[in-house]
């Protein structure tokens, strides 16, 4: 980890395109301002790590056995079955 010291009002430049400025220090809270291109996302570490971990747990090979939700599958099964029957009837 690169460790640098900056005073309020001073800035860091990362990869030529991200700028991090120390806006203000109030007690033990540092207010930072960040300028970055739109495709660079910026997040607080705790929530980033939580979502990243969840994304990694979620990734899977597609499968057919999906959860049932209240108010869905059985009705829809009937509908798509009905549509299939309609198509074969017109052929």
């Amino acid at each position: 980890m690169l460790i640098l010291s900056r005073k309020p009002g001073e800035t860091l430049v990362i990869d030529g395109k991200i700028r991090v400025k120390v806006i203000r220090v109030e007690g033990d809270v540092v207010k930072l301002g960040i300028e970055a291109p739109p495709e660079v996302s910026i997040h607080r570490q705790e929530v980033y790590d939580e979502i990243q971990k969840n994304n990694k747990e979620a990734i899977t090979a597609p499968q057919r056995d999906l959860p049932r939700l209240p108010g869905s599958p059985k009705e829809k099964d009937k509908q798509s079955q009905h549509q299939k029957e309609k198509l074969t009837a017109t052929v």
């Binding site: 899977t60 057919r64 959860p67 939700l69």
Partner: peptide, 18 residues
């Protein structure tokens, strides 16, 4: 499969997000 959809990684059909 509604209301579920799959967000699939192109080029790797074994990787997807439900």
């Amino acid at each position: 499969e509604e209301p579920f959809k799959w967000l699939q990684v192109p080029g790797d059909s074994s990787l997807a997000f439900l």
